[in-house]
Design a protein around this nucleic acid. Structure first.
Lengths: 221, 221
DNA sequence: TTTTGTATGATAGACATACAATCTGTCTGA
DNA sequence: TCAGACAGATTGTATGTCTATCATACAAAA
């Protein structure tokens, strides 16, 4: 039977616990919850108006994602990414986003390329105005990951991105970083425009590696 | 105060929940639980002798790992890896294990290299006897991951490995695959012996890609 | 003064129970 | 035949209880 995607019914009632997961995850990514901050079950229960069951199950999910740490009998805290761990994560991210860039350059559809170009233009426009490029750059990489045709890769890359997002404030505070970053983004765009998979891979990997390098300078060792 | 590490008390009792996680995860990896099989909470409660709370929290962790799927109001099943998803996962694995091989070749200590050589010899010996090389080969890659010095990479690679392990029976059933596999392993070992990071990366990636290619032939499309 | 012992409070870990919500069949009656 | 009602099974959520562990404070002893 032909079932057009347009008719597909999205599940209306998401479990409460997944809303709890999303709330806490977003709060961590947005730095409303800072590394090391305790996530006391009772407080979460009260502030979110759900049962302890839902809160605990949500915390298990987040722990498995690596966004929080649970110490037996002591509770859960927002994961604190050490300097060394940050370097490790950036190394993995560089490799994976390199793969993402390559796949996009090699396989993305015209529509996906147009979407990426649009996202890129938004980054440039925001940069020109002197505003923070954080959101638009996230959007750019979101589009890029979607265009890889590899959902597993996208999911893993996004997960890693979330885990290091707690450090993002540091990266951006480094003077001159944003300018370099823009140039690297331009290189990525150029390689993709040329459908040069190998160049796209190198450009994406380089972009993340540079961010990691800058971060290592800004991080308290 | 000098506190020798030898006196440190390791946590005796892991949380029951994590034992439940380990049990189910191992059962999935060992194919005692097959893809699609339902994980009914009540049955798990009875068979493992723990409360429903512990079982549910364990299932949340496994779901976050991607080893099981939870459909709201319908329950949890062992994750079924589609052909396409398998290809995606192998692509990511190839990249990550390539990175692992490179890091090992470039940074592993002499002791770690000896351990890897030992694991390699065990694979060869088992192969010569005509026995299944599954376990010894897992051991080989375990040692390799440990020697990368990148725990984050090791954790992610192991997680991916677990997710595709449900398909392993298929890969091994392909005639001639084991011989090819042994040759690829030899290439990896040679590159690492030569401390040639780039060659090790290519050899490791190639090994996984070949496994994926063979799998794609064996998989019901 | 420093160390050791003890009390206490806060919190998580685990369990049992209860009930609501949802899905999956089966059965019924038009 | 088939829509709809119905029952059973299972998950989703909430709640109360008890225990284990940790942090802290403070008293007692050396």
């Amino acid at each position: 039977m032909a079932t057009p995607d347009g008719l597909r019914v999205t599940r209306v009632s998401a479990p409460i616990r997944s809303q709890v997961v999303d709330n806490i995850r977003q709060a961590i990514i947005d730095r409303r919850l800072l590394p090391g901050e305790r996530l006391v079950e009772r407080e979460l229960v009260e502030s979110m108006g759900v049962s302890r069951t839902s809160v605990r199950e949500a915390l298990r999910e987040l722990a498995a994602e690596g966004l929080v740490h649970t110490v037996p009998n002591r509770g859960t805290v927002v994961a604190n990414v050490s300097r060394e761990q940050a370097m490790q994560l950036y190394r993995v991210r560089a490799t994976l986003e390199g793969l993402a860039g390559q796949l996009f350059a090699e396989t993305a559809s015209p529509a996906q390329r147009r979407a990426l170009k649009k996202a890129y233009d938004a980054v440039v426009a925001t940069y020109s105005k002197g505003n923070s490029v954080v959101e638009v750059k996230d959007r750019f990489f979101d589009v890029l990951l979607d265009g890889t045709g590899n959902d597993s890769l996208a999911a893993i890359a996004r997960s890693l991105h979330a885990r290091v997002s707690v450090l993002r404030a540091l990266t951006l505070s480094v003077p001159g970083r944003v300018d370099h970053s823009m140039r690297e983004l331009g290189d990525i765009m150029a390689a993709i425009d040329a459908s040069d998979g190998d160049a796209a891979r190198r450009a994406c990997a380089h972009h993340v590696e540079e961010a990691g390098r800058v971060l290592s300078l800004a991080l308290p060792s």
